[in-house]
Design a protein around this nucleic acid. Structure first.
Length: 296
DNA sequence: TTCCAGGGGTAGA
DNA sequence: TCTACCCATGGA
């Protein structure tokens, strides 16, 4: 099959690889990274239910998106794929104000020179909520495994191995909680996951409306969910362009002790106070510190 | 075996 | 508001 593809133009401040490696999301199914070809794959389920692979790579004038399972997409389909890729890479973020603000802070010039700050997300908030939930109170390797097992519950592309999209809220809500727990092995998180899926499937919450909320609104909305606390809500806020929340987790605490406090563990209030100087960018600066501390 | 990881809910002070 | 305890899981 002769596959289709297109190029999404990007601003000079955009860096494909920096965005892909902005945190561990590239390791969570249905994402996968091919280091040899420099391609980020995402298995996407279209609005009409079809399962398609999106292969994103750096191009001279932007990001190239190849569609290996699609010969000739309609203009509507191409628009849908383009929107998904733009969301995944947060291509529309303008970080000029961030870089300008950071010039006033000594020791942070690398953010602008290395074009850091853009964060990889999923094409929909539901999937990011689930994945953030799966990062709570467990080692990262377990988050990766839970995500992989959960992905097996998603729609598959026939006759193509390991090509499954992330499950929809409806498909998760339709499962029995015990059945879900056995499939995902997500422990006590399974009940929270099922509760979230049910609320979305039954229209109790509208995640599209959440995308239009301001930082405080989105933070409060996420925290209203069972299983989502300050860390989870702050992480979601950061991934969706709101940086005034410092999402403190064990990685943040370890980074703060090592880089900013002479190896001494600091309390969460102390960490919050430390990042206050970065104003509305504090949540992003903290995460960039974490990623730099762990060697990107 | 025990500890703990990209935490959060709940009860009781 | 703060603390203690509990929660499933699995690697170290």
């Amino acid at each position: 099959m002769t596959s289709a593809g297109f190029v999404i133009p990007t601003a000079p401040q955009f860096d494909f690889r920096v965005t892909v490696f902005s945190h561990g999301w590239l390791m969570l199914a249905p994402f996968s990274w091919d280091g040899d070809s420099g391609a980020l794959q995402y298995v996407y389920q279209t609005d009409s239910g079809a399962v398609q692979r999106l292969l994103m790579r750096e191009a001279a004038d932007g990001v190239r998106v190849d569609l290996p399972d699609c010969r000739s997409p309609s203009p509507q389909m191409e628009a849908e794929f383009s929107l998904a890729a733009k969301r995944i890479l947060n291509i529309d973020w303008d970080l000029c104000a961030f870089y300008a603000a950071m010039r006033a802070h000594e020791g942070y010039d690398w953010l602008e020179t290395e074009r850091k700050g853009r964060i990889l997300i999923s094409p929909n908030l539901w999937e990011d909520l689930v994945k953030v939930l799966l990062t709570t109170n467990c080692a990262w390797a377990q988050s990766v495994n839970m995500s992989r097992r959960l992905r097996r519950l998603g729609a598959a592309r026939p006759s193509l191995e390991d090509c499954q999209a992330f499950p929809s809220p409806g498909s998760i809500a339709a499962m029995d909680v015990d059945e879900l727990a056995a499939a995902a092995r997500a422990g006590y998180r399974s009940a929270y996951l099922h509760d979230l899926a049910r609320k979305i499937a039954e229209g109790e919450i509208d995640l599209d409306a959440w995308l239009a909320l301001d930082s405080d609104g989105l933070f409060k909305a996420v925290k209203s969910l069972k299983g989502f606390g300050d860390y989870a809500a702050g992480t979601i806020a950061r991934m969706y362009g709101h940086f005034d929340k410092v999402a403190i987790d064990t990685a943040c605490r370890a980074m703060y002790a090592a880089r900013h406090n002479g190896g001494v563990k600091g309390g969460d209030k102390e960490i919050q106070a430390h990042y206050q100087r970065f104003g509305r960018w504090r949540g992003l600066v903290m995460w960039m510190d974490v990623m730099r501390h762990y060697g990107d």
